[in-house]
Design a protein around this nucleic acid. Structure first.
Lengths: 339, 339
DNA sequence: CATTGGCACTCGCGAAACACGAGTGCCAGC
DNA sequence: GCTGGCACTCGTGTTTCGCGAGTGCCAATG
């Protein structure tokens, strides 16, 4: 049904539409690409492509525009990833290497991605569920109030205050710290919860048990609540660049971007750093159905840390975005592996 | 020059324009407000107000619109703060009291403010410069790499990794922790830098001095770099609500909102929790000259912690925004004082 | 049977023309 | 100083209209 030339025509339509942002007609198509056939032939092909639902015309007397299905086919079968230029690569490398700590790495990454793709960039902090405990610190703020600080091997630091039902001494705080570290250090956070659950039972005295119960409860709460919650955005201003075509669609997008829940869904499938996932139009969650999301995971292949994505109108430069997302993910994974 | 009625007319114009978003004419004015005079009289007053630069007409045959100068006068002399309704107050209280820790308080505050005013809300984390050190923690990640964790009395936690030029032992790390805490705990961060500057000189051995130098350098860097850098945004989608009138002005605003530097300027003057500052149009930094910013500080009067603001088009409900900003600041100050 | 040139047809878009009406400024009268 | 009256301005919305890009169909061609 779809011979090679028809596919070639679809590719040409997508490419032209992405760059000009205007419906593309048969004549313009043969002019810009040397397809070796006449406009009339192209018209026949376009009719077939429209029949199959890959393209559509906004109004009768206009050119064609790719549909979500058309973009899908383009991404899956018609495009090759556009590698970054070597100056771009060098810029990424040096920019990311200048980062001082995890916050800085994440911040720089998201800005970089936004700049590179000229779209909205989204980066997730290394997920707690996939990190291990490097160290647990317990600080006494008052006799009935402790601060728990959890440091992961990816450099994330989470802290929570525990209100105790009774006063504790310096000595028992030290004990507590030792116990927690003994049980948690080096363990994946996904397992850590189970490992400390039994601690209150093993307490030497009733007092100690009370304290331990409160501490363990808070720790578990942190592990659950904060599981994947930190996400950073950049480049929202880029949404207005395309404001010509999705003018009042900006609203729901901005709203969706403020919803952590929605953002987390973006990374749902992205667990393999070697694969870049593309979700187009209706394939996206509520509020983002007019956009396309290009996402992947970063970290070692054996141990992905979290997701990273680029979001823009469905009319986006997919090869470029896929290339940028992939490259940035690789560099970030590298940096974090070294740090 | 400006008698009472003229001021009354200006107030009416501002109020009508804010609610209808359309230039207001003399006839509509007398209809909606019972000014007790005829449209012709109002026209004379309006001519005078225009002469003085408080209002302007977009085109010859249109109604009048307040200028920045007009809003200024309105805010300074013609409006009274609109107190929140008691259900609103109750909602704030319960919502903020449910917060688990500082991150949560800040996050809830900014969302609350955005919802309450239907504008963009900006909240600054308690500034390091105005906090004191509660505790300093030193964790050994490797023999040549330490993690410094700084905990403030407002609950902020900052961490940095220090690369050491040489290996250190467990014992010297413990020493280091003790020394740092002895010098810094309880001190305002503004002074802390000076207090540890001399530490390397007092070292017992050359090795210790090398280590201490690196640690102190990183600590100072953190104090300087991270001085006021954490800011949280919410409600950017509200910008599109007013998209009718500042349609392509959204761009620079979104860009400005991604610039920490610009955001920090918003809080420049806001150091007194009892006063709410309003900056209108051209009074704002580059990029925000089409907006109005209502800001204040939160924290105890004797010890303001940081800033908090609402940003929107100059045509905004000033009394409402001022009321909301003031109230939220008070509640947050209260919550933090308790926690 | 795929390809092509020709041709009539559709229809969105931009320009020009036009009527409407909100709003103004001015003035004479109270 | 306030008011009603009135002529005038000018932006907005609507309609009309011609252009032209683009299409679909068809008959001819290799």
């Amino acid at each position: 049904m779809l011979d090679d030339r028809k596919l070639e025509v679809l590719r040409a339509i997508v490419e032209d539409y992405v760059s000009t942002q205007e419906p593309v007609g048969s004549k313009a198509l043969v002019e810009r690409h040397n397809l070796g056939v006449s406009p009339a032939t192209i018209r026949n092909d376009m009719a077939a492509l429209e029949e199959e639902g890959y393209i559509a015309q906004p109004h009768t007397s206009a050119g064609r525009v790719p549909t979500d299905k058309g973009y899908r086919l383009f991404v899956d079968r018609l495009s090759t990833v556009k590698p970054l230029s070597s100056p771009e690569r060098r810029a990424i490398q040096t920019f990311l290497e200048g980062a001082a700590d995890l916050d800085d790495v994440v911040l720089r990454t998201v800005k970089l991605l936004a700049q590179l793709t000229r779209q909205v960039a989204v980066v997730q902090y290394p997920s707690l569920s996939r990190s291990s405990v490097r160290h647990v610190e317990v600080v006494m703020l008052a006799h009935t109030r402790l601060l728990l600080v959890l440091i992961t091997d990816t450099g994330r630091v989470e802290q929570r205050v525990v209100e105790l039902p009774m006063a504790v001494s310096d000595v028992s705080v030290a004990d507590l710290r030792a116990t927690l570290n003994a049980h948690m250090t080096g363990r994946p956070l996904a397992d850590a919860g189970a490992l400390i659950l039994a601690l209150p039972q093993q307490a030497d005295s009733p007092e100690e048990r009370t304290v331990m119960t409160a501490v363990v409860a808070t720790m578990l709460e942190t592990l659950v609540e904060r599981f994947e919650d930190r996400i950073v955005l950049a480049g929202t201003a880029n949404l207005t660049r395309n404001a010509y075509d999705f003018p009042f669609t900006i609203r729901p997008v901005l709203e969706a971007l403020e919803e952590q829940v929605t953002l987390l869904k973006l990374f749902g499938e992205a667990v393999d750093p070697t694969r870049v996932s593309v979700r187009i139009g209706e394939e996206n969650p509520e509020g983002l159905t007019t956009t396309a999301v290009v996402s992947t995971a970063y970290g070692a292949q054996s141990r992905p840390l979290a997701g990273l994505a680029v979001l823009g109108p469905t009319r986006m430069d997919y090869p470029g975005a896929i290339g940028a997302v992939g490259a940035v993910a690789r560099y970030v994974g590298q940096i974090l592996a070294e740090g």
